[in-house]
């Protein structure tokens, strides 16, 4: 077992433990903090695959911005165990059954999938920023630009929804 494999197993176990922590902690603040640990573990995996740019962008965008806003909202809402609505047993049973069904579907889908083309072999350098930029702006420039337009419209939409009804100007 080389150092890469040790790191891989360490990061994998960390990611799984943290992911279980996200859904099992009672306090939503702890859930958010566990989720941040998950993002860090995934970034570690990206670095193992030599995708440094992806790793750091994952940290900047998810851990650094989105989770801060999550934490912000949850802290302001002041959720706690008493405010949690009690769910009845049937709902829980339905949840378990549907979750298991989803798992079976996923396992069935993955067992037939072709693994060979999807794995990035260690040693390739497509994850480095130079190669990634060239690929994005030459080969995939149309989807890249279209997705940026999509983001822009999503941002404008969020601002429009966030604004209250415009105050009618009183003409003097």
């Amino acid at each position: 077992m080389g150092i890469t494999q040790i790191l891989f197993w360490f990061l994998t176990i960390l990611a799984l433990v943290a992911a279980i922590g996200v859904i099992s902690s009672k306090n939503p603040i702890y859930s958010v903090l566990w989720l941040i640990v998950v993002f860090f573990a995934i970034s570690g995996h990206y670095i193992l695959m030599n995708a440094q740019f992806l790793a750091i962008v994952n940290i900047i965008v998810y851990a650094g911005a989105i989770m801060v806003l999550f934490l912000f909202v949850i802290m302001l809402m002041n959720l706690n165990a008493e405010a949690e609505p009690v769910k009845n047993v049937y709902m829980k049973m339905a949840g378990i059954i549907s979750g298991l069904t989803l798992m079976i579907v996923l396992v069935a889908a993955l067992s037939h999938s072709d693994v060979q083309n999807t794995i990035i072999r260690p040693g390739t350098s497509i994850g480095l920023i130079k190669n990634l930029g060239k690929a994005l702006f030459n080969q995939y420039v149309v989807p890249f630009e279209i997705s940026s337009v999509l983001f822009l419209s999503a941002m404008i939409g969020a601002i429009m929804l966030g604004k209250k009804d415009p105050v009618k100007k009183i003409s003097l």
């Binding site: 603040i29 903090l33 941040i36 440094q52 740019f53 750091i56 962008v57 940290i59 900047i60 851990a63 650094g64 911005a65 801060v68 934490l71 912000f72 802290m75 480095l128 920023i129």
Partner: peptide, 25 residues
């Protein structure tokens, strides 16, 4: 000397807020 040096700085700066937020809460 990582080849994403300045992005690393940027990432750490964006994490700096957690210390304050967690402590304050």
């Amino acid at each position: 000397d990582v080849n994403i040096g300045i992005l690393y700085v940027f990432g750490i700066v964006s994490l700096g807020v957690y210390g304050i937020m967690i402590g304050g809460w």
